[in-house]
Design a protein around this nucleic acid. Structure first.
Lengths: 193, 193
DNA sequence: GATGAAGTCATACGCTTGTCAAACAAGTAA
DNA sequence: TTACTTGTTTGACAAGCGTATGACTTCATC
């Protein structure tokens, strides 16, 4: 069985992913992951040298997850405008988790930005954002936004981040619903021309 | 000298405030605060029973800070529209810190939402947001927004949060500047009628 | 049964919060 | 002056948890 394909390794990453999301990276200990999986702490070090290696694996896992989400958007429609509308709807499709734990990308990134050893975390905390950003840029570019595509993509991500964050802090489902629609209206207006 | 007026107490809170902002609450230890202030750890427990008591004092301190900011907006203009424009400009006036550490309210709130013992943290992490929110509501209400004032205030806060967050994660000063103007334009359009 | 991968366990070791008794400063009363 | 009181400061210590290490056992495969 290959190193990456090990069942235990996968279970560790999955549990770490969940826990990093719900409790935060720094608030998750090896014991927590051990309790969750039943895999003894010592075994972690067979697969991962340090905790940051687990973090790296979790980021990879989230990259996969969001890649699949974007692929789904791509597959669902050939129209970039519709794709963007679907994309804006992603937080709503994970309503329960967003309300409880916020955005899995945003909250982790925010946490990692404050990390001491920024050298290691630095490439990690923008990785998933970069993925989304480039995808958005591609959609807006396809819609003829040209050089503005980059700015508009950042605007979209910023709006979604603001929405998920406030929804999370206030536990406000209604706001999440309403302002998701607002963002979608905004996308429609933008791409109307 | 009264208990609350102690110089040491104040220095502890100030250092904790800085460190909670730059490193995060969970990543700040008593030793860190001790190193920063030169005050021995043991003395902390004379003023604060637990770390959460320090957190509570820091939140109070930030409430004071933002109260002063809002007062300054109030004093600078009697026109609610202009006040809101000034308010939207606050992140820009703390550009350096926002780029490095994000929003002092948002990042702390996001961190505390994930805290285990939510009973203690719960009233804390919305406290400063509530202050800002109520102030915004007051301005929009004065502008005749009626029932919409609440929603629009949340929209404004969400936009600012999104902006500061993305600026922080990407260290993007240009985006911070540009999108601050966008928000101000949005306020102008909103309040034009 | 030999070899290397996978999994287990005991333990080291530092850092963390929190406790405590003693020291200290300064004012007040005997 | 002396002793007592009150508020403050201090460093030593306890207990627990965190990451990490390395020796050990089990397992699979050749």
């Amino acid at each position: 069985m290959g190193l990456k394909g090990s069942v235990n390794r996968q279970r560790i990453v999955e549990a770490a992913d969940r826990l990093f999301y719900s409790r935060g990276y720094n608030q998750t200990s090896f014991s927590d992951i051990s309790d969750e999986t039943g895999i003894p702490r010592g075994n972690f070090y067979y697969y991962f040298k340090t905790k940051e290696d687990i973090l790296s694996a979790v980021v990879d896992s989230r990259l996969d997850t969001f890649n699949q989400i974007l692929e789904a958007c791509n597959a669902a429609s050939a129209d970039p405008r519709e794709r963007l509308l679907m994309f804006a709807n992603v937080p709503l499709q994970n309503e329960e988790q967003v309300i409880q734990y916020g955005c899995p990308i945003g909250t982790l990134s925010s946490e990692l930005v404050k990390q001491q050893d920024q050298d290691i975390a630095s490439p990690l905390f923008t990785a998933v954002f970069d993925l989304l950003r480039n995808w958005c840029i591609a959609q807006f570019t396809a819609l003829g936004f040209g050089k503005r595509a980059k700015d508009v993509s950042m605007d979209l991500l910023a709006r979604l981040q603001g929405i998920t964050m406030m929804s999370n802090v206030y536990g406000d489902r209604e706001f999440l619903h309403r302002s998701t629609k607002d963002v979608q209206n905004w996308i429609n207006k933008l791409t109307a021309n």
